[in-house]
Nucleic acid binder design. Structure first.
Lengths: 154, 154
DNA sequence: CGCCCGACGTTACAACATATCATTTAACAT
DNA sequence: ATGTTAAATGATATGTTGTAACGTCGGGCG
């Protein structure tokens, strides 16, 4: 794997794991071996990873079966703390490249190769929030995803 | 439930079923008893209905087990022809109040009561499409949903 | 009639998610 | 060090959602 291409403020590899650890501990949660392993595996994916995918890989890595429910517990924790996002239209998860920094994420998922790219557009998601609030909704959490075909698969 | 509030151009009840039938036949598809039953059941819901919910109700209605499989097939057909929409964040389906008329729908789903409301905002979804296309995606299908708490549950 | 094709039935299974309770580990006071 | 408590994880079971594969039935058409 290449070493750097440090772009604007995104982490990757060990750097990313460190950032995740910091964000989680800053939130008063523990950074356990299990959590580290699950995060590490999740971070290797460039497409949304299902809890079962992760469970399998972590099981291999540890030489001991890790049950899906353990993975779900930790993924939920990650999502709550912005270390990861759930991609609703894929029933799967992605590591967040900028833990601790919170956005309403927009995901583009390629129906052909399954890869996902992530864009932030706060004005766009802000408008989604506004529209929901105008309709009387509160505590809103936008889910903005786009299914389509990526440039590589075109 | 109130009786009317005929707003701009939405169908309901028998009227809606008729519109659905027209739209489907216009697309060269058949309007069978099974399809009519499934659509009728789907249209009774004011919250996203799972394929299994529908299967159960249609089974009752017909006095004969209808397998989820059959329901999925027909729901897929409905979705393809704009008679219904899939709500990704709920793994469930909603009848479309204006069959034949195509929009990128925005759904607001209440986490408390589960009800869903539907809004159209073509400029908003248009911007989502544009953002995806700017990122090199084609044949895009926006998924814009908002989880939150509705006014009634507030 | 014989053929094809679309719709639906049947069965089986794969994939995703949660509930419940037991066990282990960490934190901390005694 | 040891007991107490709460958090984290393990184990098992089950519930929910979604597909695959193939069989049957009935209508349209040569």
């Amino acid at each position: 794997m290449a070493t750097h291409a440090h772009h604007h403020h995104e982490h990757q590899g060990h750097d990313l794991a460190d950032a995740a650890k910091s964000a989680l501990t800053a939130a008063g949660e523990q950074w356990t071996d299990m959590r580290a392993d699950i995060f590490a595996v999740l971070a290797t994916f460039d497409k949304p990873a299902s809890a079962y995918d992760i469970a399998d890989l972590v099981s291999q890595k540890r030489g001991k079966r890790v049950a899906p429910n353990s993975v779900y517990r930790i993924l939920d924790l990650f999502v709550s703390n912005n270390l990861a996002s759930r991609v609703e239209s894929a029933n799967a998860y992605l590591a967040n490249a900028h833990p601790g920094c919170l956005h309403d994420c927009i995901f583009l998922i390629c129906d052909s190769c399954g890869s996902a790219t992530h864009i932030d557009d706060d004005s766009l998601t802000g408008n989604v929030r506004k529209a929901a609030e105008a309709a009387g909704f509160s505590a809103v959490r936008p889910v903005v995803e786009v299914r389509g075909t990526c440039a590589d698969c075109d």
